[in-house]
Amino acid sequence: MTSTTIATANAEAGRVRLRINRTHLAAIVLLVPAVVLFGVFVVLPILQALRFSFYDWNGYGSPSKFVGIENYIKVVSQRHFGTALRNTTFIALVSLLVQLPLALWLALSLYRNTWFTAFLRTVFFLPYMLAEIAAGLMWNFMYDGNYGLAHSLADAIGVEPKFVLADPAWVMPAIAVVLVWKYFGFHMMIYIAALQGIPNDMVEAARLDGAKPWQIVRHIKIPLIRSALAVTAFFAITGSLQLFDLIVPLTNGGPNNASLTIVGFLYQFGVTRMRIGFGSAVSIVLFAICVVVSIIYQRAARIVEK
């Protein structure tokens, strides 16, 4: 009796186990490559950086001088770190409040297909296709008051050229111009794709009901491309946090570190000085900022969806 029960129970358990295995086998097989790749190329480097950030290490050999949280204290007390935080915040705000509205406005004007809008769309999208370094060099030349466009322009009007990239007060606005110029086309394209997905009869119906163009935009189009807006906002924020390669040819973080971003700070004070521990500490701080931002973003996105 007892042995039969146990046997049945075992058989039962075996079946259950088997069932779990079968249903999950496909999932496991499909997941393994992704998990391995993610682990090796994302999780592992983050953990490595976390470990390095507790060492004083110049990149040679293996880290051996454990210094606790000293690197973090140095990061926070470095006088240029505040500048970097401020600049990155500024870039994020410009991206969200200037770049995205501009892109939306252009998308609303250009999303219908005619040869002329197609032409303009291509023109607006061109800057995005340029390599960051090339775009930076180009604008560095445009802003140059000795030889560049700024010089010719000032000459034509008959005033002294202004060296915006050499002026701590003007350098960030000047970079923001380049940034908006470089990326608005990308966001515009996303909006256009979303706008073209709106069923025409919906807009038609609204118009028949007497909705004015602005009302159609406000109550039909924008709500319907909500997810595109959310995606571009996300791109704009993450792009701002990572901004680096455009600035190197423009100012290299100057004048006097006035245009450092967080990544620029990491590069100037961590990588070029071969202070891997310090640089890792900066990257962990950046990572923490990214995590916080993405949590806020998720919350905000959920509220908007509702």
Partner: peptide
């Protein structure tokens, strides 16, 4: 220094 030297690289300054 020349105007805008803060934003000029070595190449530019040697050209000046």
């Amino acid at each position: 220094f020349q105007k805008g030297f803060e934003a000029a690289g070595y190449a530019s300054s040697s050209g000046v």
